[in-house]
């Protein structure tokens, strides 16, 4: 059973590695992405921010940041509930 799992995972990983050699975009050349050019050209004019990453994170793709903040808030709620100060036995 263990040998079967090992052979199966080796075949899957080997196949994926062989498929990776034929990747459409080589390393360092992401190809042409239409939204990419639009963001790089328009971020300074639209938002007056020099950092394009910040303008994408906080303005163009704001919903993702709201989701990230919600995830962080849920994590804080769970950590505080898990490690709260327990009632002492008297």
């Amino acid at each position: 059973m263990k040998k079967m799992i090992f052979i199966l995972s080796a075949v899957i990983i080997g196949g994926l590695t062989c498929g990776l050699l034929d990747v459409p975009h080589p390393f360092g050349d992401p190809g042409v992405v239409p939204m990419d050019e639009h963001f790089l050209g328009q971020a300074l004019k639209d938002l007056s921010t020099e950092n394009v990453v910040t303008s994408i994170v906080f303005d163009y793709r704001g919903f993702d940041t709201i989701g990230e903040a919600a995830v962080l808030f849920t994590a804080i709620c769970s950590v505080t509930a898990l490690f709260r100060e327990g009632r002492k036995k008297s």
Binding site: L47, T49, S55, F58, D59, T65
Partner: peptide
Amino acid sequence: RLFPQGTTAIMS
């Protein structure tokens, strides 16, 4: 000169 204006800076 670029001023720190807009909602991007405050959201940051």
